[in-house]
Design a protein around this nucleic acid. Structure first.
Lengths: 189, 189
DNA sequence: CTACTTTTAGTATCTGGTATTAATAATAGC
DNA sequence: GCTATTATTAATACCAGATACTAAAAGTAG
């Protein structure tokens, strides 16, 4: 057999990329792809510090389990660091790689929006609240690793309608502001 | 030893819930929790049709690999089904369990927003676009499994500014509308 | 006490590895 | 050409977390 293929370094580069694209490949599948023995693949992984299949899968699972919390399932996007129910609240969100546009590293608007919206909902002292109308301005682009500090204030309440202002700052500079009108859906009318 | 604990049925119910909450538990850890032997746990899993740890982790990893595409890393939230660059576009999003409030099953606003925003960006025929100002109205609550049809139209263009209206309908009824002002950041000014 | 269900134990086997040692093949140096 | 070095393959022992199967023991109901 011998190696009919790539020299070591090139193979290892390829290997890294392959696994980045698809972390679900076993050593055996990889050995087929590169036409080398399984042992060679293992040696390569060892040199490159790439963990075994199961660990890779596990870390994908765990990472995404957290991501769920970040944007998906949880009640609030960002970390709630202060709250006075019915009055005001502050939350912090540090955008990660997956929240930005690849080319520009500018944070996708809906993450900023999501932080603001969920903060607005959190400060309302009611069982369930729902957005009615939102009026929004994005002032400045926000970049990867900028720290988004959102501050919400309830400015008016009329019946089951709440008017909440949320201002988000990056380095004390306003990056976003939004006016949310929330409708409480408490069972006691 | 014997069983100092739950009868079979109750244990199996508990087991299901435990694994739902934390799919990373091994049979051995479970046998500790319930004070039964590993074999009993395996029998339970067999009866309940719950796959082994590795399969569970794998499915979490795979599922969330897709979810990443849904809200996180990808360029567009929802499925782009028609597009005329610079003019209009339509996208469809069917909200899943993880996009709704647990109690009410109402879709969290930022998913509706994200669909609209990303559609607005998609219709602009420019390398990178960024939200300037958005003016938004949520007309009606949207529920789990409702089919969100978002339609975007470029209504005006001035220099590198684009005005895009996005209307989202559920069952031909308007559920959301938003006005987006996008700023193109093309390198050819 | 017997019949049946539930639980536990034990053994063989599987996958996808780690870790280690040793042999073989390829390539470079001179 | 021969040797030193590097790269590759092979072989073996071991591990976690299982499946699949058989059998025994414990518990429970009639």
């Amino acid at each position: 057999m011998a190696r009919l293929n790539l020299p070591k370094k090139a193979r290892q580069r390829e290997l890294m990329e392959r696994l980045k694209a698809d972390p679900f490949l076993t050593d055996e599948e990889l050995s087929d792809i590169f036409h080398v023995s399984v042992q060679t693949i293992r040696l390569d992984r060892l040199e490159l510090g790439i963990p075994e299949l199961r660990e890779r899968i596990k870390s994908v699972a765990e990472r995404n389990y957290e991501k769920l919390r970040a944007i998906g399932g949880q009640e609030i996007v960002g970390e709630l660091i202060e709250i006075e129910l019915g009055k005001s609240g502050i939350s912090i969100l540090t955008p990660t790689e997956d929240m930005v546009f690849e080319k520009t590293k500018i944070v996708r608007g809906h993450y900023i929006y999501a932080q603001a919206e969920s903060l607005a909902i959190a400060v309302i002292d009611a069982k369930v609240a729902l957005i009615g109308v939102a009026n929004i301005k994005y002032k400045n682009p926000v970049y990867l690793n900028d720290k988004l500090v959102a501050k919400a204030e309830v400015v008016r309440q009329r019946g089951n309608k709440y008017f909440v202002w949320v201002k988000t700052k990056v380095n004390y500079q306003e990056a976003f502001r939004g006016k949310f009108i929330l409708v409480s859906m408490d069972d006691e009318q």
